[in-house]
């Protein structure tokens, strides 16, 4: 049975197939309106979320399925000390697939170890967020026509930004993708991404501190939020939070066909004035995220069905 814990759980070919399916769902939604009739998704959210949880639930409901779950740890048995392993063993009897978000890194891996149903990582601490990455890939592919031969600037919190780690993990598998990593020194890309994913694979990347210095070279600008919840000290967070703000002045130095993406939520790192620029594509990402999650649910349910028949 297949789980989705990291973007690498799908090969390049499987990812292409999944993005094709997401695209097909987008253009012919009625064809998929009942393909999950009678199926249930459990959304186990130990950490607050708006987009991701609602997006998973919308994805399942778009296909005729139902949803159950909890939206914060305080309304689950975690407050009574129940382990992730026990929770998933129980939930496996209630639902057909589950999406789990947890503040601790690796929690979805533990869930997958003990689960009787497919597990989707809906974000684990500062580690991975593979379905956001699939939405990012779908958006880039739609905008550029392919996932190769471009320069992407990833800006903001690269240390704790799980969407960043997942995105780099996925993009290094495509040819001629150049990375410009823009962050303050304290929030530079985390060690395993720099060493194991970029350096060891001979991927071209640069680490810089100023967005203004590099914005004219970019084909995609991926902005991220400095995440308050990942800091152990409030002072540290306050010092970092206003480091990068994209406004129309900075954007005036960018290429005419550079696109701006953001996994959302934003705080203040993209000025509201940028929203009306035709290069701002972050709300399209939100829409694509639902189609991608529909495709993930269908693909994993199919894999579970195949595994059960063996």
């Amino acid at each position: 049975m297949k789980h989705l814990l990291s973007p690498l759980d799908f090969s390049v070919e499987e990812t292409e197939k999944l993005l094709d399916l997401a695209h097909e769902i987008r253009i012919t939604p009625e064809k998929y309106a009942h393909c999950c009739d009678g199926k249930k998704i459990a959304t186990l959210f130990y950490e607050p979320s708006t987009r991701t949880r609602l997006s998973f639930e919308a994805a399942m409901m778009n296909m005729g399925g139902n949803c159950l779950g909890f939206s914060e740890a305080s309304s689950s048995s975690a407050t009574k000390g129940e382990t992730v392993a026990d929770t998933i063993r129980v939930v496996s009897h209630y639902a057909d697939i589950c999406a789990i978000r947890h503040p601790k890194e690796g929690a979805p891996k533990v869930a997958a170890d003990f689960s009787g149903i497919p597990v989707v990582n809906a974000g684990d601490g500062g580690h991975q967020h593979p379905t956001q990455t699939l939405a990012d890939l779908m958006t880039i592919r739609e905008l550029r026509g392919s996932l190769d031969n471009f320069t992407i600037g990833i800006c903001g919190d690269l240390k704790f930004g799980r969407t960043v780690h997942s995105l780099i993990n996925a993009l290094v598998r495509y040819p001629n993708v150049r990375f410009i990593l823009i962050s303050p020194r304290e929030l530079r890309i985390t060690g395993y991404v720099r060493d194991d994913i970029l350096t060891d694979n001979g991927i071209e990347f640069e680490e810089v501190e100023k967005l203004e210095d590099m914005i004219d070279q970019l084909d995609i600008l991926y902005m991220t939020r400095v995440q308050k919840e990942r800091f152990f000290s409030e002072d540290e967070y306050l010092r970092m939070k206003d480091y990068y703000i994209l406004d129309n002045e900075k954007l005036s130095h960018a290429k005419e066909d550079m696109y701006i993406l953001h996994p959302l939520p934003r705080v203040n790192e993209i000025a509201v004035e940028v929203d009306s620029d035709p290069r701002a594509k972050y709300f399209e990402q939100v829409q694509n995220a639902v189609f991608v999650r529909q495709a993930v649910i269908l693909t994993l349910l199919e894999s579970a069905k195949t595994a059960a028949s063996l």
Partner: peptide, 30 residues
């Protein structure tokens, strides 16, 4: 931030990810 920090019953498992540099990474959080 690793799940092993709050669930004491979990084994602490590391995998060799780079033989030349002798790098081991946590199975859960890397």
């Amino acid at each position: 931030r690793c799940i092993t920090s709050i669930e004491p019953q979990l084994d602490h498992i590391f995998h060799l990810t780079n033989k030349d540099k002798h790098i081991y990474r946590c199975r859960y959080c890397e």
